[in-house]
């Protein structure tokens, strides 16, 4: 379980997160929705250690992770797929995936090939393009690669930042489906940030609505999806 209490993150004088409290429950998909600039990405970046909070607590499985470096937080089982299909274009598909498992080479040597095979089973298109440079992939394939890069480390918590960004609806559906299946079959906990609220709420168990760095609503996803007032006020449709 990931527990966030009163989290504040600032960029200079700009307050991006203004006292956020929320929880991501084990083996569930929790989605954080909200308009552009609501602080959704900052929330994930603060959890994974890329940004340092000004105050507040982040507890993962009973242990505080505030102030740890990103490379240590990954080792605790939290994998972050940042916004914008974050892969390294100059490396091959295979290298991008195996990059995610480098830190497990000593302790889990025998598992690495298996984990990589699972990624190729999850996204068969990546296997076809193993030797290609990541820069030559389509947007959807790059997003699959970024997710594989994170999943190959066998995380317990996946932080997924706007996987739908710039992708065709069909591809989005495919990616979200894969993540959903993974969550239901392996017990992965997912924290999904989305601007596309409908898609996200459709698959999530729980929804958190963020506006200007503050939590406006924190309810079961279905309930949130049905609330037309909130939708009109914060998401504009």
């Amino acid at each position: 379980m990931l527990k966030i209490e009163n989290l504040v993150t600032k960029f200079g004088s700009v307050v991006a997160l203004d006292g956020v409290s929320m929880t991501a429950h084990e083996s569930k998909i929790t989605t954080v929705i909200g308009a552009n600039g609501a602080g959704k990405s900052t929330l994930l970046r603060t959890i994974s250690g890329l940004e340092h909070p000004a105050q507040g607590a982040i507890t993962w499985q009973g242990e505080s992770i505030v102030g740890r470096r990103p490379e240590d937080i990954v080792r605790l089982g939290i994998a972050h797929v940042p916004e914008g299909h974050a892969v390294i274009s100059e490396l091959s598909v295979e290298e991008n995936i195996s990059m995610g498992s480098l830190f497990r080479r000593r302790k889990f040597k025998s598992d690495i090939a298996k984990a990589m095979d699972e990624m190729y089973q999850l996204f068969p298109r990546l296997q076809e393009r193993r030797k290609q440079l990541a820069g030559t992939l389509s947007g959807g394939e790059r997003q699959m690669l970024a997710i594989s890069r994170a999943l190959v480390s066998r995380p317990q918590l996946l932080l997924l930042d706007e996987p739908s960004l710039g992708l065709a609806p069909l591809v989005v559906e495919q990616i979200i489906d894969s993540v959903n299946t993974l969550c239901r079959t392996t017990g992965l906990t997912v924290l999904l940030v989305e601007q596309n609220a409908n898609t996200a709420l459709g698959v999530a168990d729980h929804g958190v609505l963020l506006a200007l760095g503050k939590v406006v609503a924190d309810r079961p996803a279905a309930e949130l999806k049905a609330d037309e007032n909130l939708r009109a006020a914060y998401l504009g449709y």
Binding site: P82, I88, L91, M99, L102, R149
Partner: peptide, 17 residues
């Protein structure tokens, strides 16, 4: 590979552990 990744994109490298 770790060195190349660090050189090309530090953020993704860090997030990969």
């Amino acid at each position: 590979l770790a060195m190349r990744a660090t050189a090309l994109n530090q953020e993704v490298a860090k997030l990969s552990g």
